[in-house]
Amino acid sequence: EVTIKANLIFANGSTQTAEFKGTFEKATSEAYAYADTSKKDNGEYTVDVADKGYTLNIKFAG
């Protein structure tokens, strides 16, 4: 089991951190699914992958 950390960075400057656990593939998939659901309210996003994929910096356009 691994933990994927997602740092969500919103257009207004606020941030949120979420953690997803499971296999690398499952946790990563859940992090992207979470970003997709947040996209409806926060606009399109880009992802900067860090820490060999264990940290995702997800920046929303607003």
Rank of each mutant, 00 (worst) to 15 (best):
N42D: 05
Q16I: 15
Y54R: 07
T23K: 06
A11K: 10
D36P: 01
K21D: 04
Y32L: 13
F10Y: 11
T23A: 07
S14M: 14
T23L: 08
A18S: 09
E25C: 12
G22Y: 02
T17C: 12
K5C: 11
E1W: 15
T15L: 10
A50D: 10
F60K: 00
K5H: 09
A50W: 09
E25D: 12
G22P: 00
G13S: 05
T3N: 05
T23I: 07
N12T: 07
A31S: 03
Y45W: 08
L8Y: 14
E44Y: 09
T55V: 10
D48A: 11
A27M: 02
K40T: 10
K21A: 07
K59M: 13
N12F: 06
A27G: 04
T3Y: 06
T15R: 12
F24A: 05
D51K: 03
E19G: 04
L56G: 00
T23C: 07
T55H: 03
T55I: 09
I58W: 02
T55L: 07
Q16L: 14
F24I: 08
E44N: 11
A35R: 00
T55E: 05
T28L: 15
E1V: 14
Y45V: 02
L56R: 00
K21L: 07
T3I: 13
Y34D: 01
F10W: 08
G22W: 03
A6C: 15
D51L: 04
K39S: 13
A35K: 01
K26Q: 13
K21E: 05
I4E: 01
D51G: 05
S38K: 15
V49C: 08
A27T: 03
T15N: 07
D48L: 12
Y54V: 04
S38I: 15
D41Q: 12
I58G: 00
G62S: 10
S29Y: 12
K26Y: 11
S38V: 15
V49A: 07
I4W: 01
Y34K: 04
A6W: 03
A18C: 15
A6E: 01
Y34P: 00
Y45N: 01
V2G: 03
K39D: 03
T17D: 04
A35Y: 02
K26V: 11
I4F: 02
N7I: 15
A18W: 12
E44F: 09
D48S: 13
D51A: 04
A50C: 13
K39M: 11
K5V: 15
D48C: 14
F60Q: 01
F60R: 00
A18G: 05
A6T: 08
A6R: 02
E19V: 13
N7C: 12
V49E: 07
A61E: 12
V47H: 02
K5E: 04
A33R: 12
E1D: 11
S14Y: 13
Y32G: 01
S14D: 13
I4R: 00
K52E: 15
Y32Q: 04
I58E: 00
S14W: 13
S38L: 15
A33V: 07
N57K: 05
K21C: 10
A61W: 15
Y34E: 02
T23W: 06
Y32M: 11
T46E: 09
A11C: 12
T15G: 07
T28R: 09
E19L: 14
K5D: 02
V49P: 06
Y34H: 07
E30Q: 12
D41I: 13
G13T: 04
S38M: 15
K21P: 03
T28K: 07
A31M: 03
L56T: 00
K40M: 12
E25N: 08
I9Y: 14
I9N: 06
S38W: 15
E25T: 10
E19R: 08
D41T: 13
S29R: 14
T46C: 11
Q16G: 07
T17G: 06
N42S: 08
G22A: 05
A61Q: 13
A61M: 14
N42L: 08
N7D: 02
Q16F: 14
A31H: 01
K5A: 06
F60M: 02
G62Q: 09
G62P: 09
Y34N: 03
Y32C: 06
T55S: 05
F24E: 03
N12K: 04
E1F: 14
E25V: 09
A61D: 11
T15H: 10
A18H: 14
D48H: 12
Y32R: 06
A33M: 10
D41A: 13
A18T: 11
E25M: 10
F10C: 05
N7W: 08
F24S: 03
F24M: 10
T28M: 15
A11S: 11
S38E: 14
G53S: 03
G22H: 03
D36H: 07
S38D: 04
T17K: 09
N12L: 05
K5R: 14
I58K: 00
D51W: 03
K59C: 11
A27E: 00
G62R: 08
S38A: 15
L56Q: 00
N12S: 08
G13Q: 05
L8Q: 01
V47W: 04
D41L: 13
T3D: 02
G43F: 04
L56H: 02
K39T: 10
A35H: 01
E1M: 13
A27C: 06
S14V: 13
N57D: 05
Y54Q: 06
K5M: 10
S29G: 10
K26S: 14
Y34T: 04
T17W: 10
F10K: 03
F24K: 08
E30T: 06
F24R: 07
G22V: 02
E19C: 15
G43L: 04
D51F: 04
Y45L: 01
I58Y: 11
A18D: 04
A50G: 08
G53W: 03
S29M: 14
T46F: 08
G13Y: 05
L8M: 09
S29N: 11
N42Y: 15
K59T: 14
F24Y: 12
V2R: 05
V47G: 01
T37N: 15
I9S: 07
T28Q: 09
K26N: 12
N7Y: 14
A27I: 03
L8E: 00
T37K: 15
T37R: 15
G43T: 04
K21W: 10
I4Q: 01
E30S: 09
I4N: 01
F24L: 10
A35V: 07
D51V: 02
S29Q: 15
A35I: 09
E30L: 14
G22N: 06
D51E: 07
Y32V: 06
T23P: 09
T28C: 11
S14Q: 13
G22S: 04
N42A: 11
Y32A: 03
Q16V: 14
F10M: 07
F20G: 00
V2S: 05
G43A: 04
A50N: 07
Y54D: 02
K5L: 10
A18Y: 15
Y32I: 11
K39N: 06
I58R: 00
V2I: 11
G13E: 04
G13C: 09
E1G: 08
N7H: 13
N57Q: 06
S14K: 14
G62D: 08
K40R: 12
D36V: 06
S14I: 13
V49T: 10
V2L: 06
E30K: 09
Y34R: 04
D36F: 07
V2N: 03
T46H: 09
N57E: 05
A35G: 03
F20M: 02
S38G: 10
K26H: 12
G13W: 05
T15D: 04
K52Y: 14
E1C: 14
F20V: 01
Q16A: 12
N7E: 05
A6F: 03
Y54N: 05
S38N: 15
Y45T: 01
I58S: 00
A31L: 05
T55R: 04
K5Q: 09
G43M: 05
S29E: 14
A33K: 12
N42K: 09
L56S: 00
A33D: 08
N42T: 05
T46V: 11
N7F: 12
K39H: 05
E30N: 10
Y54E: 04
T15S: 11
T37A: 15
N57H: 09
G43K: 03
F20T: 00
K39I: 12
E25F: 09
F24G: 02
N7P: 01
N57W: 11
I58Q: 00
A18E: 09
K5Y: 10
D36R: 06
I9G: 03
Y54S: 05
A6V: 15
K52Q: 14
K5I: 15
S14C: 15
N7T: 12
F20R: 00
K21S: 11
D41P: 05
F20L: 02
T15Y: 11
N7R: 10
A31P: 01
T46W: 10
F10Q: 03
T3M: 08
A27P: 01
G62W: 08
A61P: 08
D41S: 11
T23Y: 06
I9R: 07
E30C: 13
G53T: 02
D48V: 13
D51M: 04
